[in-house]
């Protein structure tokens, strides 16, 4: 089975773009399954189901969504294999910019949108910088110059990725994205596979439910700001 991780900032169009790409694949008879990760709640399950897809949702609740994702990645794969999909898409929650769910040897997609501004590619970490495929959305509402500058800035931080423009509403580019997803390598097991980059560390009193502010209550992995 081909496995794909899709990541991107909140509201960048991950679900829309994924749906359009999958729609093109469904027409060709490709069996696709989806696992959607989110933090609190999600309506995306319904969107996927409406398109006739098998989908499972994982809500991380009060856990870090990315750590939650990694702990469940292999189970997602097992589910997909058992269901006999040709392709399984794991869509992550909109993540903090330092994080990435991307796994070595598994096709990694990052979705970002033109509206987020031309400085955004700089601000996003491994999620963008280590992606194989960068999907740029919402190109229809910005000027040609902004589209060009934005794509160039993406290229600056990730010179090797394939960059594709997809319109999540009209579906323009969705067919082409589907073709690229089919190029993903086969994944049969994730046991022992490596994340492309370590996730941000967090093991402090606040991880364990502390709510009080103040130096007496900070314990564990605590980092202090430097003021000029």
């Amino acid at each position: 089975m081909k496995l794909i991780t899709v990541a991107g900032p909140p509201s960048s169009g991950k679900t829309c773009v994924t749906l359009k790409a999958i729609a093109a694949l469904q027409q060709e008879g490709v069996q696709v399954g989806v696992v959607k990760f989110d933090s609190l709640s999600t309506q995306d399950q319904a969107l996927y189901e409406k398109q006739g897809l098998a989908v499972t949702t994982g809500l991380s609740g009060n856990l870090c969504p990315d750590h939650f994702f990694v702990s469940n990645a292999n189970d997602c794969l097992a589910w997909g294999l058992a269901r006999g999909f040709d392709l399984l898409v794991i869509e992550s929650a909109g993540l903090c910019n330092r994080c990435a769910p991307h796994i070595q040897g598994v096709q990694a997609v990052c979705v970002i949108d033109n509206l987020s501004g031309v400085d955004t590619p700089k601000k996003i970490g491994p999620m963008l910088k280590m992606a194989d495929l960068v999907v740029i959305t919402k190109g229809d509402i910005v000027s040609q110059a902004e589209r060009e500058v934005f794509a160039y800035r993406v290229r600056q931080v990730n010179a090797n990725a394939v960059i594709i423009q997809v319109n999540g509403l009209t579906g323009q580019g969705g067919h082409e994205l589907g073709k690229l997803l089919l190029g993903a390598p086969e994944t049969t097991n994730l046991e022992g596979s490596l994340l492309r980059f370590s996730m941000p560390a967090a093991l402090c009193s606040y991880c364990l439910g502390q709510r009080k502010i103040g130096s007496d209550f900070q314990m564990g992995n605590v980092k202090k700001m430097v003021f000029g």
Binding site: D140, I141, E148, V154, V162
Partner: peptide
Amino acid sequence: RFAIDHKLVAQLSQNMNFVM
């Protein structure tokens, strides 16, 4: 097919905005 510096079509559409 994917080189941004070889993109074939520039689109000057009607409903274009500047977001900067």
